[in-house]
């Protein structure tokens, strides 16, 4: 009797049921992965590139004669990026300080920028008027800027160096010592 190689069971062709199952499984996993990626935007840390953004200033505010700007336009300057809202109590604590500092550092290549987070426009404008804020401020349309910076509340302040890198970050209302010391260090570092 000749030996015959034993062959395995013949493979079934790929049937519709298995295709449907795979489509469902891949779809569910894809959605889960998409959700994870969306929710894991991390706050940019010092030394990391500051996320690019575009802002259209509130009426009456300009920077370099323009009513809108991008972060790239501010390259070469020290940027103090402050997130605030009119409904935020702690924001009121630092509002005068930020305005005063922006005036003190005017002409020293330091730019203050305010971003109103989830605020109602008339209230934002009233807030800016109340604190006589002169540095450029803009609403965060679609909360895209606060999403990219992954802010967890207001106020939060990011310090961005001349190369567009995050230099420092402050959570909560900032005080004069921290604000001035970080700006002085950035100016001294040439950063």
């Amino acid at each position: 009797m000749s030996e015959q190689a034993v062959e395995g069971t013949p493979k079934k062709p790929f049937n519709v049921t298995s295709i449907v199952i795979w489509v469902v499984v891949i779809g569910v996993l894809g959605l889960a992965a998409f959700g994870l990626v969306r929710n894991t935007t991390a706050r940019p840390e010092p030394g990391e590139k500051a996320p690019e953004f575009h802002m259209t200033f509130f009426d009456g505010y300009t920077w370099d004669g323009k009513t809108s700007a991008e972060l790239a336009d501010l390259q070469g300057k020290v940027v103090v990026l402050n997130f605030w809202a009119s409904w935020c109590g702690p924001c009121r604590v630092e509002a005068d300080l930020l305005e005063q500092a922006s005036r003190n550092y005017a002409g020293q290549d330091v730019v203050f920028v305010g971003i109103a987070y989830s605020d109602v426009e008339p209230n934002s404008k009233a807030y800016l008027q109340e604190f006589d804020i002169t540095y450029p401020n803009a609403p965060d349309l679609g909360t895209s800027i606060s999403d990219d910076y992954d802010i967890t509340g207001v106020p939060e302040t990011f310090f961005i160096d001349r190369d567009g890198m995050i230099y420092d970050f402050h959570f909560g209302p900032i005080d004069a010592v921290k604000l001035n010391s970080v700006i002085e260090r950035m100016l001294a570092d040439g950063g």
Binding site: T17, V23, G27
Partner: peptide
């Protein structure tokens, strides 16, 4: 945009699930 996924996926999953169940 991507919101279409939220709208369409449940129906696709439902139809797929029903098909598997019948099979």
């Amino acid at each position: 945009g991507l919101n279409w996924l939220i709208w369409t996926w449940p129906f696709i999953a439902l139809i797929g699930g029903a098909y598997i169940f019948v099979r």
